Simulated assay, not measured.
Amino acid sequence: MTSPELPSAGHAEVRIVAADPGAARHVAEVLRRGFAATEARSYPAGADGGTRLHLTVDTRRMAEPVRSWLLTSQCSRDDHTEPDEI
């Protein structure tokens, strides 16, 4: 198994998985309010009709509330990868 290609510097790939497509779109919209982002790419997320959205956010172009939160939050160096993520 190979590691996925990393996004370019200053960008982050975001995956949103939800049973309800509307919920996934709402989360993507909140991210777009805080960061410059690409249009979400939509994929089916299982036999039960779920939705998976992928988008790329530009972490160099943040709205003020996001910038303030990121500057005051602390990042843990522990690996918090979920078992189903690569």
Rank of each mutant, 00 (worst) to 15 (best):
S3K: 11
F35R: 06
H11T: 12
P21F: 02
L71C: 15
G49C: 00
S3D: 10
P44G: 02
H54T: 03
A47F: 14
T56G: 05
Q74Y: 08
T81L: 14
T51A: 06
Y43H: 02
T51H: 02
V14M: 08
A45L: 01
R52S: 00
A24R: 00
A37P: 01
G50M: 02
R61M: 11
V66T: 09
P21M: 02
E13D: 11
T51P: 00
R60H: 08
G50F: 02
R32H: 14
D79C: 05
D79E: 07
H80L: 12
H26T: 12
H54Q: 05
T72E: 13
L6R: 09
P7Y: 00
G50A: 03
T59H: 08
S73Q: 11
G22C: 06
T51W: 07
A40E: 01
L70H: 08
A9H: 15
S3G: 06
R77Q: 07
D58K: 08
D20W: 09
D58V: 13
M62T: 15
I16Q: 01
Y43S: 07
D78C: 09
I86G: 14
G50D: 00
R77L: 15
S42E: 15
P65V: 08
S8L: 10
W69E: 15
H54R: 12
L6N: 06
Y43P: 08
A47P: 10
L71E: 14
S8Y: 13
A45I: 05
L71D: 06
R52V: 07
S3E: 13
I86S: 10
A23I: 12
V66R: 14
A18S: 02
V14F: 01
P65K: 07
V57Q: 01
V17S: 04
L53D: 01
R67V: 09
A19N: 11
A28E: 00
E85N: 03
R41G: 09
L70A: 06
H26S: 13
R52W: 02
D20I: 06
S8H: 15
L71V: 13
G22W: 02
A18F: 04
A9S: 12
T81F: 05
R25E: 10
A36N: 15
M62P: 05
M1W: 13
A24Y: 03
A37V: 03
A18L: 07
H11E: 08
L6E: 04
T81K: 13
T38F: 03
A28R: 02
P21G: 04
V57R: 00
S76K: 03
H11L: 11
D79G: 07
W69M: 07
Q74L: 11
V30L: 12
E5L: 13
H26K: 11
T56Q: 03
V30F: 13
C75D: 15
E29L: 15
F35I: 12
A9G: 09
E82Q: 03
R52E: 08
G10I: 05
E82L: 14
A40R: 01
R15T: 11
D20T: 01
